[in-house]
Nucleic acid binder design. Structure first.
Lengths: 232, 232
DNA sequence: TTCTATTCTCAGGAAACACTCAGGTAACCT
DNA sequence: AGGTTACCTGAGTGTTTCCTGAGAATAGAA
């Protein structure tokens, strides 16, 4: 299957729009609803491959949605979304099998990564590989491991996400705004300076293991993860 | 499709006219409106391929326009425009889909370049390639890299834009006024001397790598990017 | 809780950049 | 030829952008 189908269930329209834009661009077919009742209907009709489900819906809890679906013999993996604090008791109990959960606010690229991980685990979807290898750097997404020319380096979560984003867009300049929009949580309202800081952190860990400066600055434009120096 | 359709949404008539003229000349079909309400109407009727949208409109915010359109299942990429300092706290998530974001004041050719980049990425369109190659010079727009006979040169943002403009109009004399209008931001009120300076900068970086003088002066008229014509 | 890793802000300094200006040079004119 | 105009370019100035270390605030783990 070429375009996995995702069903987004969240009552906040902003979040639905954000997810919809990001997932569509990442190559998913997207269905988006705001209530649990609609979710059940669409899940039955459209047969999505995965569902993104807010656990706190206005009409019913996410839990009852999954229960309903299961009783209808509709079996699809779920990525649960929840607010930061109501974690622990209910949500963790919900995740069975291939399911996963994330807290709001999230970063859009992290959502995409999680969805791909779930699809990878559950069905044999035609989905990105767990291993990203670009030039001298290899990332194992399942194990959260990063190797530079075969040597492993330790990255903090944010460093990891930033590097993954730059590598996924290798040989293309990414502006700081783009980086903020994809790598940082959607409610982050800080300044671009934080991107500079994290690029600096990354370089400090990467550069000692490579002869090339892998992350380059395009002054006034952004940053680029550069693999092939010159062509021709 | 040969002529992509662009919908311009901005309340300042000056800016609308500026964009309209520039985009028409670049080969786009242009629709232009001043309010969000009109934008929705025209987007529905004319089915544009892309929209240029000021985030600060008199009747409603640019975001509510995109939301409205999305809820109507009208799906088109957006190039957002905003004042220079609106970024940072308020607006995030603008670039997650195929969308992009620019601040005012902009240079008209930069707008065109961004639009083509968006159409290229959302790739429903038959649009210019990311690589511009004219004679001995090759520009990779994705990577913001410039090669002269295979050797990379480093250009500042303004040098880059100037060279791209001259190459896009190769073998045609461009006056300094034309250059100012296309390459510099629309509120620039300096003198033509700056064009002379930047041509000088460019030559200093380009000429050592070429036997020909690629940027030639047409005294009293302007400058021309000359391609050694093997055929014609 | 305490401890530690991490996130984020900030500020100083360095470098790159944009722009202006003026003296010099080349092209064009009569 | 001389005189005039347009152009070139080095020098200088003020601004912007970027880097990085230091430290405060926060979250996660022991």
């Amino acid at each position: 299957m070429k375009n996995p189908k995702v069903l987004i269930v969240d009552d906040e329209k902003n979040i639905r729009d954000l997810l919809e834009a990001g997932l569509k661009f990442a190559g998913f077919s997207v269905y988006s609803v705001g209530t649990g009742t609609e979710a059940v209907t669409v899940a039955e009709k459209a047969k999505p491959d995965i569902m993104i489900l807010d656990v706190m819906l206005p009409d019913q809890s996410g839990f009852s949605v999954t229960k309903k679906l299961r009783s209808m013999n509709i079996d699809l993996p779920v990525l649960f979304l929840s607010a930061r604090d109501d974690r622990g008791d209910k949500v963790t109990g919900l995740t069975v099998g291939g399911d996963d959960y994330m807290t709001k606010p999230f970063s859009i690229d992290e959502v995409i990564a999680r969805i791909q991980a779930i699809l990878r685990r559950t069905k044999k979807q035609d989905v990105e590989d767990s291993i990203i290898e670009v030039g001298e750097i290899k990332i194992n997404q399942d194990a959260h491991e990063v190797f530079v020319n075969g040597t492993e380096i330790e990255l903090s979560p944010t460093e990891y996400k930033l590097l993954r984003f730059l590598m996924a867009n290798a040989n293309r300049v990414m502006s700081k705004d783009q980086i903020l929009d994809h790598v940082w949580e959607y409610d982050f309202n800080g300044e671009q300076g934080i991107v500079e800081s994290y690029v600096s952190y990354l370089r400090k860990k990467i550069d000692p293991l490579s002869k090339n400066q892998l992350i380059q600055t395009k002054r006034g434009v952004g940053y680029i993860f550069r693999v092939t120096k010159s062509e021709e």
